[in-house]
C-alpha cells in the first residue's frame, strides 16, 4: 500500500466525509457521518488505522482541539484534507468515471 496508486474505497469515503464535515471532521463525527450517509456499520478501529495511513501519505493533516468534558476530558483530533488529498480524490473519481463510460445501462 505505498503512497502512489489509487485510493481504496474506504479511504475515499473517509476523505469525502471529512470534506463534508469541514471543521467538525474528527473520529466520532466521521464514523457517524459515514454510517448515516452510506448506511452501513463502520468499525471505529478501521477509521483510525486508515486516518493514520492517510496522514502518513500526506493526504490529511490533523490538529488537536482543547480537551472536552463530554469526551472524558480528552481532545478531538480534527482532520483536514490536504490539497494533495483532494487531487487524489479527483484522480480516483476520474478513473472510475472513465471506467463507467459506456456502461450506463447498468446504472439504476
Amino acid at each position: 500500500m505505498g503512497g502512489d496508486g489509487y485510493l481504496g474505497e474506504f479511504e475515499q469515503m473517509l476523505l469525502l466525509a471529512a470534506l463534508h464535515l469541514g471543521e467538525e471532521a474528527y473520529g466520532a463525527a466521521l464514523g457517524q457521518e459515514l454510517e448515516a450517509r452510506v448506511g452501513r456499520r463502520v468499525s471505529r478501529g478501521a477509521i483510525y488505522v486508515t486516518l493514520d495511513r492517510l496522514e502518513a501519505k500526506g493526504l490529511i493533516r490533523s490538529a488537536m482541539s482543547a480537551p472536552r468534558a463530554e469526551r472524558g476530558g480528552r481532545p478531538r483530533r480534527i482532520v483536514s484534507v490536504t490539497p494533495e488529498g483532494v487531487a487524489q480524490l479527483q484522480a480516483s473519481r476520474e478513473a472510475l468515471v472513465t471506467l463507467w463510460d459506456g456502461l450506463e445501462v447498468l446504472e439504476g
Binding site: G27, M64, E70, R77
Partner: peptide, 12 residues
C-alpha cells in the same frame, strides 16, 4: 493523538 481515539469512543 491517541487520547482522541478514547475521546471519540467516549463521546459516541
Amino acid at each position: 493523538r491517541w487520547d482522541a481515539v478514547l475521546g471519540d469512543l467516549h463521546e459516541e
